[in-house]
């Protein structure tokens, strides 16, 4: 096919594109995955029995503030990295802020807690499953983002994969909070972060293969 024929063919199909189409596609991908993750949590894990009481406490909102702020930062990074034009990424060092704030709360907790209770506080009741649940519940969100990426044009595939993994991990953790009864900051800082950042690392590893176009 010569270039004139190609252009004739491409010009047959010029659907209008709204200025918000790009961000809408990212939101749909994440929301679609999140619905599946939420269904899995509700079906197989169940909402924590004291959910209503937890809504009035500090630790539930601390966990949500942590995972949601990481999730929002990661989505902004996905949005930027899914466009081809190079742009500075320095601002995403701000993702360290929630981690540091949570670490600050964790230090406060340790100071107030007798040291013989530190280990129990750190391991909670569910440290053996927390990270792997956060990681595996992130898979549907990651798949949703892969769908979004099909119409996108990332040029830094590893970074884009890492951002997608981070978004998947952070939103999966946000949904997992509905089930998880843990209360301590150092628990969240360790086991939630482990799951979330493993998801980002796996995303970075898979990015060059999965996000090529």
């Amino acid at each position: 096919m010569n270039v004139d024929q190609l252009i004739d063919r491409l010009s047959q199909d010029v659907a209008p594109v709204s200025p918000s189409a790009h961000s809408r596609r990212i939101v749909i991908g994440i929301a679609g995955g999140a619905v599946v993750t939420a269904a899995l949590v509700l079906t197989f894990l169940g909402v924590r029995p004291d959910f209503h009481r937890a809504l009035t406490g500090f630790s539930f909102w601390m966990k949500w503030a942590y995972t949601i702020s990481l999730g929002i930062g990661a989505v902004l990074a996905v949005s930027r990295l899914s466009r081809p034009t190079p742009s500075p990424l320095n601002i995403f060092w701000l993702l360290a802020v929630p981690v540091l704030l949570l670490a600050g709360i964790g230090i406060g907790e340790l100071v107030r807690t007798p040291s013989q209770d530190w280990l129990a506080m750190w391991l909670g009741h569910s440290w053996t499953v927390c990270s792997s649940l956060v990681l595996s519940l992130g898979i549907p969100v990651f798949l949703g983002l892969l769908w979004s990426f099909r119409r996108m044009a990332p040029t830094r595939l590893r970074a884009a994969g890492a951002a997608a993994g981070l978004a998947a991990g952070a939103w999966s953790a946000t949904i997992y909070c509905l089930h998880c009864p843990e209360v301590s900051a150092i628990f969240v800082l360790t086991w939630y972060s482990l799951g979330i950042f493993l998801a980002a690392a796996i995303g970075a590893a898979l990015g060059p293969r999965l996000l090529r176009w």
């Binding site: 252009i7 491409l10 594109v17 790009h22 899914s82 044009a153």
Partner: peptide, 12 residues
Amino acid sequence: LISVHTKRETYD
């Protein structure tokens, strides 16, 4: 040209 066409959503 095909990429410009199929990826036009990513133009800001």
